[in-house]
Design a protein around this nucleic acid. Structure first.
Length: 290
RNA sequence: GCCGCGUUAGCUCAGUUGGUAGAGCAAGGGACUGAAAAUCCCUGUGUCCUUGGUUCGAUUCCGAGACGCGGCA
């Protein structure tokens, strides 16, 4: 039996101080950092994602930051594949892998010992199914999933079109039901130390979030967003990133800057709430108060 | 000062021919094994401005007052 690699996993809602804690722990434990964040993977998404600067990284190697162009697709399976190799590699060099980030799904799939093959996005299929939903209703699309994989269909609400479509996409590509494509082992491949950051008072976190958005604006969030919008237009990575998605209507003169900033703060608060809902369901996490 | 309109949920407002009220948004809770900063599900929230009167009963009708908005002086 092979000895399991030890890893530290740092999770928590946005603006809880994960980045700083990770760098501290890396210094103390001879560690290297793997980012588990679905937005920091993109080049140029710097201020909005609160990506640590080179100075902030303070000599600690960081992986899975700036690995994609904004138009490129990414998914959990990509993250898991690459991260498994990184953990292997870092451990072999006698260093400690520290995984940090806010994307709960990435932690769950990587450390929960799921095994999923990569299935790329299928733009034509997505468009076709979206059109079907628009013309004949979301139930029609859900029925397609039922015929392909009734078990999977039971778990997904018909209104949850994004997940219904992605499931169909995967099943069609693999020609098998989801349960056969994505398997789960009983025990994790890793010896994991879970650390969670949270506040007992929700309002404390919200104040941190509001303050951080103001700091982003001071650091040039608007210019960053404008440059990206002018260069790429309404691509999905921009439309699906808090901090950019709210500013695009401002650039199009549809909302005032004040309103756009308010919704950045509001969406960030709601995002933190969703993150917490997933992380709090994990009994292995040792929580620390900020 | 006079005339008119308004005051109901955190906000914007609807409503009760008199029987203590409901939408949207906000907020809270939750799901999540494949787009996850995405997506989806569930749930409330009340001195109906105050005070007298009429009434079995007033947030609703009548009087007075307060506050806000507009017009005239």
């Amino acid at each position: 039996m092979v000895k399991k690699h030890r890893v530290i996993a740092i999770v928590g809602p946005t603006a809880s101080g994960k980045t700083k804690l990770a760098i501290d722990l890396a210094h103390k434990n001879n560690g290297e950092i793997i980012s588990a964040d679905s937005r920091m993977v993109y080049k140029y998404f710097d201020i909005a994602t609160a990506k640590p600067t080179l100075a902030e990284r303070d000599g600690v190697p960081h992986y899975l930051i700036d690995i994609l162009e904004p138009e490129e697709d990414y998914s959990v399976a990509n993250f898991v594949d690459v991260t498994k190799e990184l953990i292997e590699n870092i451990s072999e060099r006698g260093k400690l892998p520290i995984i940090v980030g806010g994307t709960g799904l990435y932690f769950k799939v990587l450390l929960g010992n799921y095994n999923l093959p990569r299935v790329a996005a299928n733009a034509e299929l997505r468009e076709e199914l979206e059109n079907l939903a628009a013309s004949q209703g979301v139930e029609k699309v859900h029925e397609i999933l039922q015929k392909l994989d009734n078990e999977a269909a039971k778990r997904i609400h018909p209104n949850n079109l994004v997940r219904v479509i992605r499931s169909i996409e995967i099943i069609e590509a693999a020609k098998k039901p989801l349960a056969e494509i994505a398997t789960k082992g009983d025990v994790s491949d890793y010896d994991i130390e879970w650390i969670g950051l949270n506040t007992t008072e929700r309002s404390v976190l919200y104040e941190r979030i509001n303050r951080r958005v103001d700091e982003m604006l001071e650091r040039g969030l608007i210019d960053e967003a404008k440059t990206l919008y002018e260069k790429y237009g309404k691509i999905s990575s921009l439309m699906n990133t808090i901090g950019y998605q709210e500013l695009l209507p401002y650039f199009d003169n549809e909302v005032s800057l004040d309103d756009a900033v308010d919704s950045i703060k509001q969406n960030t608060r709601r995002y933190a709430k969703r993150q917490l809902s997933l992380f709090l369901a994990n009994p292995d996490i040792n929580w620390r108060d900020l």
